[in-house]
Amino acid sequence: MHEPIARGLAALCLLATLAGCAGPKPLYSWNGYQPQVYAYLKNDGKQSPEDQIIELEKGVQLAAAKGAQVPPGYHAHLGLLYLNAGRTDQALAAWNQEKALFPESTKYIDFLIANMKKNRS
């Protein structure tokens, strides 16, 4: 009589353990963002801005495919790389995307845009 109860409890414990292993879904899809920022700041010449752009663009595509969001700063950094590569229209688009996703970045992004416009004239 007690054996079925013990089996039921064991099954319940196993189920609870497996459910606990799944963990919460991450808030953002990082997709190599941190190493790209580090490589940019380190500036060791191992990776060109174009190579970094390609990697970050892949990250945006991977996040979109997963239905995830890239972290704050991702589009801002991508915009900086676009600017360094002379692709100002893409830089503006990336920065505007950053502002749309993270309105708290508006002052910083507006600062970047103003500096870009000041340096172009």
Rank of each mutant, 00 (worst) to 15 (best):
E3K: 06
Y108V: 06
A10S: 07
K25E: 08
Q34N: 10
R87M: 13
C13Q: 12
T106K: 14
L12N: 12
R120T: 09
E104F: 11
L14E: 08
L41W: 10
L12R: 14
S48H: 01
D44E: 15
L15D: 08
G67K: 12
N84F: 06
G73M: 08
P35C: 12
L80P: 03
P103W: 08
C13V: 14
N31V: 02
A68C: 00
E98N: 02
N96D: 14
Q69I: 05
A68L: 00
A11T: 10
G67C: 13
N119R: 14
P35N: 09
L14G: 04
V37N: 05
Y28C: 01
N96R: 15
L92K: 13
D51L: 01
A68H: 02
L12M: 15
G86N: 00
I109Q: 02
H77L: 07
G67S: 13
A64F: 04
E98M: 03
G79R: 00
P49V: 07
A22F: 12
I113M: 03
S121A: 06
A16C: 11
K117G: 01
S105G: 02
L12G: 12
L9A: 10
N84D: 11
P35H: 10
Y28F: 09
P72E: 15
Y74N: 06
Y38D: 15
A91D: 05
L18I: 11
D89S: 14
L56M: 11
A93D: 06
I109P: 04
M1T: 13
Q69T: 09
Q90D: 11
K66W: 08
E55Y: 04
G67I: 11
G20L: 03
G86K: 00
A16V: 14
L12C: 13
P4H: 11
N115K: 10
I109W: 02
A63K: 01
G67L: 12
A10G: 05
Q52F: 03
Y28I: 01
L14F: 06
A39L: 15
K118L: 06
L62Y: 08
Q69W: 00
P103Y: 07
S29D: 08
G23L: 06
V60E: 09
A68W: 00
N115Y: 04
E3N: 06
I53F: 00
I54Y: 02
A65K: 15
W95I: 03
Y28D: 03
D89G: 10
M116W: 03
D51R: 06
N43A: 14
D110I: 00
C21I: 01
L62T: 10
L15R: 08
N43R: 07
P103K: 09
Y40S: 11
R7H: 09
G67Y: 13
D110K: 02
G45Q: 05
R87Q: 14
D110E: 07
Y33H: 13
A64D: 14
L14Q: 09
